[in-house]
């Protein structure tokens, strides 16, 4: 899916707690964390696959996702926004809590 409509702005998402043995653009500090979609940023080849020199990297939507410092570090009053490929994200399973 590349049209940017899977996670509309405001969607509560969670990053996968993945730890791949290769290049990735999901920093360790934001793995398995809850955030809110700011908006889609447009499609691009998935860096994880492209970095392996493969010509078959899937094109995915990238989303700007906003995280509260408290959810990343347990403290802090600021926010951090990251641009994350769709396959790094799932809808927050506890979004209604």
């Amino acid at each position: 899916m590349t049209d940017g409509d899977r996670f509309p702005p405001g969607t509560r998402v969670r990053t996968f707690p993945h730890d791949p043995p290769h290049h990735t653009r999901l920093p360790r500090y934001a793995r398995g964390k809850r955030g809110v979609v700011v908006e889609p940023e447009g499609p691009a080849e998935l860096a994880d696959v492209s970095a392996q020199g493969r010509g078959d990297a899937p094109v995915e939507q990238i989303y700007a996702v906003r995280f509260a410092a408290r959810d990343l570090w347990g403290e802090g009053d600021h926010h951090v926004v990251l641009d994350l490929w769709e396959s790094y994200l799932e809808e927050d399973p506890d979004r209604d809590r």
């Binding site: 290769h22 290049h23 080849e45 860096a47 492209s50 970095a51 392996q52 020199g53």
Partner: peptide, 12 residues
């Protein structure tokens, strides 16, 4: 000869 992601991978 290489793309930017391969280059980043090599640095990392």
């Amino acid at each position: 000869l290489f793309n930017t992601n391969e280059f980043r991978d090599a640095i990392e």
